[in-house]
């Protein structure tokens, strides 16, 4: 663990803070792009109930896609840089987010949805005011799963020369520097835990207390 606590490794353009920020940047932007694609798709299919098999099939097919191969292919086609990293990671992030959103919207009690229409909500209102808020726990589940995978897999970006904490793993491997490799792995795991905690906090703030497991307040 000596490598990790050496002050020399905590400064400069290739130091731990810079790599950490790079890694977090990959994760955040990947999740944002993934959400923009996967949430509307999952929500729409969940709401209409049509094309569920497409969502499930697409999710499974994307899950089977090896991220390494996607990364290398896009590098060979489009050249080095951050773009191939984002393509590979976004494809990784889409299945859990899409599946979580779809499952969340589908799982809303049909009686509740019936009531929403019955009191005169329009379809957009049914989706945005009732289905999405009630689906939030499962949507967050999808996001947290995606975040874990993206943080862990963003390590591979370094294989094609991009930044992030993966640099320590691959540089360590090249130099047979076990301390550096271990430091990289520990930092990735630490970042994953922090990102997950961040999502847990966000979830507490945005999910209605009415949806928490019963018994956390008031009488039953």
């Amino acid at each position: 663990m000596g490598w990790l606590f050496d002050p020399a490794h905590w400064s400069g353009s290739t130091g731990i803070p810079v790599r950490l920020v790079e890694h977090f940047g990959y994760t955040l932007l990947t999740l944002v792009i993934g959400a923009l694609i996967a949430v509307p798709l999952g929500a729409f299919v969940g709401h209409t109930g049509k094309g569920g098999f497409v969502i499930v099939g697409l999710s499974n097919a994307l899950r089977a896609l090896p991220t390494t191969a996607v990364l290398i292919l896009v590098v060979l086609w489009a050249g080095l840089g951050d773009f191939p990293v984002y393509v590979a990671l976004v494809l990784l992030a889409i299945p859990p987010i899409m599946a979580g959103t779809y499952a969340g919207v589908r799982a809303v009690d049909p009686v509740t949805v019936d009531a929403a229409r019955g009191v005169g909500m329009r379809e957009s209102g049914v989706l945005l005011q009732v289905e999405i808020p009630n689906a939030l726990p499962l949507i967050f589940g999808g996001f947290r799963g995606a975040a874990l995978q993206v943080v862990a897999t963003a390590t591979i970006a370094a294989y094609t020369g991009a930044g992030g904490l993966g640099r320590f793993v691959f540089d360590g491997l090249a130099l047979q520097d076990f301390g550096q490799m271990l430091a990289g792995a520990v930092l990735v795991a630490l970042l994953a835990v922090l990102v997950d905690l961040g999502f847990a906090g966000l979830q507490r703030l945005t999910v209605s207390p009415g949806l928490r497991p019963v018994g956390t307040g008031g009488k039953r």
């Binding site: 943080v151 390590t155 990289g184 792995a185 990735v188 795991a189 994953a192 997950d196």
Partner: peptide, 15 residues
């Protein structure tokens, strides 16, 4: 189990 998941596969393979 959650923590194990956060360890990148490449790191686990080299460690």
């Amino acid at each position: 189990a959650n923590i194990l998941f956060t360890i990148p596969s490449i790191a686990l393979i080299v460690i």
